[in-house]
Amino acid sequence: MSAALIELREALLSSPLSAIGLTLAGYLMALWLVERLGRPSWCPAVLLAALLVAASLWGLSIDVADYQRGADWLMLLLGPATVALGVPLYQQLHHIRALWKPLALSLPPAAALACCYSVALAWALGASPEVMASLAPKSVTAPIALGIIEALHGSVPLLMGGLLITGVMATLAVSLLAAPLGIRDHRILGFTLGVNGHAIGTVRAFEISPTAGAFASLGMSLTGILTALCLPLAWQLLGL
């Protein structure tokens, strides 16, 4: 490579706009591909987009830390975007008022177990504390989980991978288990998808029906809030 080209590459990479451009291009291309594949539930667009970006970083031999530094400018918007989740929560409050008793009875154990099962399994198989911390908030919607992981000192990339697999698995599990258990109530299906499968489950729930979708987003927000309030405290108490 000639000196001028090397200089150009340095100049382009020093601007966060190259990372932002790569992110946008990867995401839009993934959306297009997923559309062409007929929106398979096992392959969310985010996963495909991340693969495309990772492949281009590897192909252009760009350091992932450099990319992340540029993309941080984009991820800055996650702060106001997390706050924005208060709007759908406010709009769903009438469901909480109507059904506060079954929700209050089933949400805390469901959200706690979603976290405990995985941490217990990981612990039994000899995972390190950092891995357990990264898996604990796996059922929480990503913007909230990113806030939790800071308090637990887990690994952000591992958490993100875990979130994706959890979302896809929860969607599969609900479609596999609901029929044998004789559950056809869209409120239950939606709530289960939201509590266990966060945003990926909620997208699936909206495909079932608007009722399922409303309960999924309710389950997702409540799980996120409950876990964000309790998990860091529980983690400190356990001395992990």
């Binding site: 990372a19 992110t23 946008l24 990867g26 995401y27 969310p44 667009a45 985010v46 996963l47 987009a49 991340a50 970006v53 990772a54 970083l57 992932v64 990319y67 992340q68 993309a71 941080d72 984009l74 991820m75 918007l77 996650l78 106001p80 975007a81 924005a84 989740l85 709007v87 759908p88 919607t141 990503a142 913007p143 990113l146 952000v156 990339p157 591992l158 958490l159 993100m160 991978g161 994706l164 945003a199």
Partner: peptide, 16 residues
Amino acid sequence: LIGLLAMLIMPGVVGV
């Protein structure tokens, strides 16, 4: 913003 959430978290997924 909520519609863009998936794209906003995507750079975090790349690290995996």
